[in-house]
Simulated assay, not measured.
Amino acid sequence: MELHQAFGQALRRQRRAKGLSQEEFTIVSSRTYMSELERGLKNPTLDKINELATIMGIHPLTLLTECFSLKDDSNIDEIFARITQELASVNDR
């Protein structure tokens, strides 16, 4: 799956899980932009990902983790193990 499509699916899934409509994001994005993100037509900036996550009450990494899980068809535990290992190797230096 393409990265922008995976992000769109993750965004839609998280938004719906929180019981939010696209209109509830209008303080940070238009409904059109939300629709384009969810359909994988646009790529958000890091700032936008943070704003969207804040509206949903989740950490931005929750959204990105689900995105990469969908993109690579990966287990979330495997993603966390890899991230933990990579961060530990940087901190050991």
Rank of each mutant, 00 (worst) to 15 (best):
M1A: 07
M1W: 01
E2T: 12
E2I: 02
H4L: 12
Q5D: 09
Q5P: 01
A6Y: 04
A6H: 02
F7H: 00
G8F: 01
L11P: 04
R12F: 09
R13D: 14
Q14P: 07
R16Q: 14
R16T: 10
A17V: 00
K18G: 10
K18W: 03
G19C: 04
G19L: 03
L20Y: 04
Q22I: 07
E23A: 14
E24Y: 00
E24I: 04
F25L: 00
F25P: 00
T26W: 08
T26L: 05
I27K: 01
S29Y: 05
S30N: 04
S30Y: 01
S30F: 06
T32K: 07
T32A: 13
T32E: 13
M34C: 02
S35M: 04
L37H: 00
L37V: 02
L37S: 01
E38Q: 06
R39H: 10
G40R: 00
G40Y: 03
G40Q: 01
L41I: 10
K42C: 06
N43Y: 08
P44R: 04
P44F: 02
T45G: 05
L46Q: 10
L46K: 10
I49R: 03
I49V: 09
I49N: 03
L52C: 06
L52N: 09
T54P: 12
T54W: 15
I55S: 09
I55C: 04
M56S: 02
G57I: 00
G57R: 02
H59N: 10
H59Q: 14
H59S: 09
L61F: 13
L61R: 10
L63G: 02
L64C: 08
L64T: 04
E66P: 04
C67I: 06
F68I: 00
F68P: 04
S69Y: 03
L70Y: 09
L70N: 08
K71E: 08
K71D: 06
D73I: 13
S74L: 15
S74V: 12
N75C: 11
N75T: 13
I76K: 04
I76N: 12
I76S: 15
I76T: 14
D77L: 15
D77W: 13
E78G: 13
E78L: 14
E78F: 14
F80A: 15
F80L: 15
A81D: 14
A81F: 13
R82Q: 15
R82P: 12
T84F: 03
Q85V: 12
A88V: 08
A88F: 07
A88W: 02
S89R: 03
S89V: 00
V90D: 12
V90H: 12
V90E: 14
N91S: 08
D92K: 03
R93L: 13
R93S: 10
R93K: 11
R93F: 15
